[in-house]
């Protein structure tokens, strides 16, 4: 039987891969992709806790994890839009989007 731990391990592995993509890449768009991977891993953990959680008092409390994930989705959409707008702006000014080259102010 597949239990909570298996889903949690998949979620942890996904989070570790996202951490590696975030740190190990120099392109801003790759870093944004890594952040999306991190958010997906957190969503997976929240849903699996909501599915396999302990006793809930009322039935609708069992879906609190789902509500959590919906708000994470909203914030992720807003964050992606702002981050990509900043990418385009940085590219327009500096003609590069490598974070190692964007190290000076002004």
């Amino acid at each position: 039987m597949i239990e909570l731990e298996y889903y949690l391990i998949v979620s942890i592995l996904l989070f570790g891969i996202g951490l590696f993509v975030c740190i190990g890449k120099k392109n801003i768009i790759s870093i944004v992709m890594g952040i999306e991977l991190l958010l997906n891993a957190v969503n997976l953990a929240a849903i699996s806790f909501s599915r396999y959680g302990s006793e809930f008092e009322s039935q609708s409390d069992a879906l609190s994890g789902h509500i959590f994930v919906i708000f994470i989705l909203t914030v992720a959409a807003a964050e992606a839009a702002i981050a990509l707008a900043l990418c385009v702006l940085v590219y327009r000014h500096l003609k590069t989007i490598n974070v190692s080259d964007v190290s000076e102010l002004g």
Partner: peptide, 30 residues
């Protein structure tokens, strides 16, 4: 959205290069 960002920054669209923190990134992930 990400596709638009990749296409609006054309010089970088072939480059998914590693930063100098590549090995530390793998290490931290593991």
């Amino acid at each position: 959205l990400l596709l638009f960002a990749v296409m609006l920054t054309p010089e970088s669209s072939t480059n998914n290069g590693n930063s100098k923190y590549f090995l530390p990134g793998i290490l931290i992930g593991i």
